[in-house]
Design a protein around this nucleic acid. Structure first.
Lengths: 188, 188
DNA sequence: CTATTTATGTCAGCCATGTTGACATATTTT
DNA sequence: AAAATATGTCAACATGGCTGACATAAATAG
């Protein structure tokens, strides 16, 4: 919500480019002045970041959707299909398409739930884990390079920034998921 | 619940890196240990970030592709079509589809180049500028909220982190584009 | 025990946005 | 005059979202 859109209604009015009829804040910046640099840096940084795995994926005739599935299953072994849908925020039909390929080609297996036999719990196979790690390492190289260029504390600063950028609603769940996955990894 | 089965180790499957056979670094972390937290936080943060404008866009029957075009034309008034293609990294056919709609509906105009009359230089109309600003402000709210939760220096830290995450090749060009656009904005 | 709900899967079709390839037009450069 | 450049367009196809309808098995409620 937060429909703070008073600015956008000047469609017929302001002939020129004088976009800043914004109230001053004392420090010279308007309340609603867009933070252009972060908006654009995020765009370019994320584009490069998600592009790293593309070459490997395309050799397998996979796309980014396959990457996301393998990634989260590797991180959350034994997760329910419904949980994966929640994380990815897509429909079961969309998931089904890529999941079927990953299962057919031996990257992921589904096991009947022990207590609830309707569930098809998801696990990566060794092959799936290897792929997941290979892709994660490509992205990790970029992150490590970045942290290397910045001073110490860069990791912590990045973590805090990114966490603060997540919706308040999701934030707790995301952090819980990461913590749980980290524990699972260390036990494997 | 969720017995978090300890998962398969790395199989003989090819291509991948061996799961945990990484050389030690002395600080306990392996050279190739994936930096899971940043990888996942970037995914969730970026998803929320680009999702902010969706509601506004869908009311206009526009998508994220339209957003990107209006954004960069607003930021770089008078840019050549070829420059926009370079920034977006898409083909002219993909651009053509959304650009045509934006021109037809009065968000963008194209003017013949003065020196080179083959060029169709791109400008936002007042309507286009209003839309661009409205969308940028939605994203800015999120960024400001994040910076408000973090201490002072958060903006600078985020800028440095995101810049370092960009390909070395692109980085200079991106920074130049941002600086040029900032100058153009302040002149308007 | 029967009825309902839940977890998952599947078919069919549509949409947004990316791709390649071929070709057209106007204009500038050689 | 010929070649290169900037842009646009048509056609076909790929990926990965979506909705709606329906199917099955298992758990749960009455």
């Amino acid at each position: 919500m937060a429909d703070i859109n008073s600015n956008a209604k000047n469609g017929a009015s302001g002939g020129g480019e004088t976009a800043s009829g914004a109230p001053p804040t004392g420090d010279g910046s308007a309340v609603k002045d867009p933070i252009w640099d972060i908006i654009e840096l995020l765009f370019f940084a994320y584009r490069d970041f998600v592009g790293d795995p593309d070459e490997v994926l395309s050799k397998l005739a996979f796309g980014r959707a396959h990457h996301r599935v393998v990634h989260f299953v590797k991180r959350n072994p034994g997760m329910k299909v419904a949980d994966l849908l929640d994380i990815l925020n897509i429909t079961k039909q969309s998931l089904g398409r890529v999941l079927k390929q990953l299962v057919d080609q031996g990257y992921i297996v589904q096991k009947e739930g022990a207590q609830d036999r309707r569930q098809r719990l998801l696990y990566v196979t060794p092959k799936g884990e290897a792929l997941s790690l290979q892709l994660a390492q490509l992205q990790t190289e970029r992150i490590k390079r970045a942290f290397g260029e910045l001073g110490p504390g860069a990791h912590e600063a990045a973590r805090r920034f990114l966490t603060a950028m997540i919706d308040g609603d999701n934030r707790e769940g995301v952090l819980r998921q990461i913590a749980r996955a980290d524990r699972a990894q260390s036990r494997s």
